[in-house]
């Protein structure tokens, strides 16, 4: 198995396209840092001395909204409970919301680039099986004393490794760029999390890693889908096309449906953003964290069963 993964990595990283992908991620993350720095120098942010007063006003509004919406919508109520608790905690502990960019706020900003990581992962996923067919190398690959399941599994694991590598590259370059451009915050700022009705301080570093991983779920599901389409139809353009379209439009379309139909909660994209269960409101009322996890597992299994089922049965005739 190890040897198979080494083989896949060799095929992946010895192609110039892959190296270009790595370079683009690094350049984008660093470039974004440079742009933010430029922006900050041009329009320096001012420290808000009245932050306590502002928070008080916000608190008052939040309480009113909670009172009016909270009864009908359980999820809304939770969201505002959390907001209020954190704001109160800030006032009583004299912790101003961060006004200046620092390394951690920047790393949080570059989380948006995960969709680029998603695009690249999907492109690679879509090519993994179908290119073996279009190159004709599948014939020499499948006449080895190795089961087809193992060959496909090694390809999928390599895909996960590649995706994880892009993510850690994004995180590391962002952290380095943030450190160079904005530096560490003056006093260490913990992340304020709201669990079991209490506000607790958490390490911002671990929190960010968690946020990165949570934000990658959607892209990994779509990459798995692209991998499945590429295996079943042996067509990488089809796999890239469908998956990229869904990556860019899936969220939006699902949100439109979620407004009027409750079955929208069974759509993959209603469940990919698990962070709503930590701070936010789920798309459809009544959705829970475990519901979403089960939905994700079900989709994942369907994709994999299709991919592995078709790949191990297929007659290679081309």
């Amino acid at each position: 198995m190890m040897n198979l993964i080494i083989n896949e990595c060799a095929k992946l990283f010895r192609r110039p396209g892959t190296i270009v992908m790595l370079a683009i991620i690094a350049v984008l993350a660093a470039g974004l840092g440079g742009y933010f720095k430029y922006d900050e120098v041009k329009h320096p942010s001012q420290e808000n001395v009245h932050w306590k007063k502002d928070l008080q006003t916000e608190l008052k509004e939040d309480r009113e909204t909670m009172a009016s919406f909270g009864k009908s919508n359980q999820n809304m109520k939770k969201f505002y409970e959390r907001q209020i608790a954190i704001k109160e905690y800030r006032i009583s502990n004299d912790m101003a919301p961060e006004a200046e960019q620092n390394v951690w706020t920047f790393v949080r900003d570059t989380k948006g680039l995960i969709s680029i990581v998603g695009v690249f992962t999907i492109i690679v996923a879509a090519g993994m099986v179908s290119s073996e067919f279009s190159w004709g190398t599948i014939k020499l690959l499948l006449i080895r004393p190795t089961s087809r399941v193992k060959i496909l599994l090694s390809k999928y694991l390599t895909l996960l490794l590649f995706s994880l590598m892009l993510l850690s590259l994004l995180f590391t370059v962002s952290a380095l760029a943030g450190l160079i451009f904005f530096g560490l915050p003056e006093s260490s700022v913990p992340h304020l999390a709201f669990t079991n009705g209490e506000v607790v301080e958490r390490s911002i570093f671990l929190q960010l890693i968690g946020e990165y991983l949570l934000s990658s779920i959607g892209m990994l599901m779509l990459a798995t889908m692209a991998f499945m389409i590429s295996t079943v139809f042996r067509n990488s353009s089809l796999a890239v096309g469908i998956s990229l379209f869904l990556l860019l439009m899936g969220d939006m379309v699902t949100k439109i449906f979620a407004g009027s139909f409750t079955w929208a909660k069974y759509v993959l994209f209603a469940n990919t953003d698990l962070s709503v269960y930590f701070d936010g409101v789920p798309l459809v009322e009544g959705m829970t964290f475990s519901f979403s996890v089960i939905m994700l597992v079900v989709y994942f299994l369907i994709f994999q069963l299709l991919a592995f089922g078709v790949f191990s049965k297929r007659d290679v005739a081309a």
Binding site: A10, K139, T146
Partner: peptide, 18 residues
Amino acid sequence: EMYKFLTGYQNLLQYARM
């Protein structure tokens, strides 16, 4: 059909590992 972006030796290594 071989992997065109690899050298002949790297191609053989692919199969040797299997």
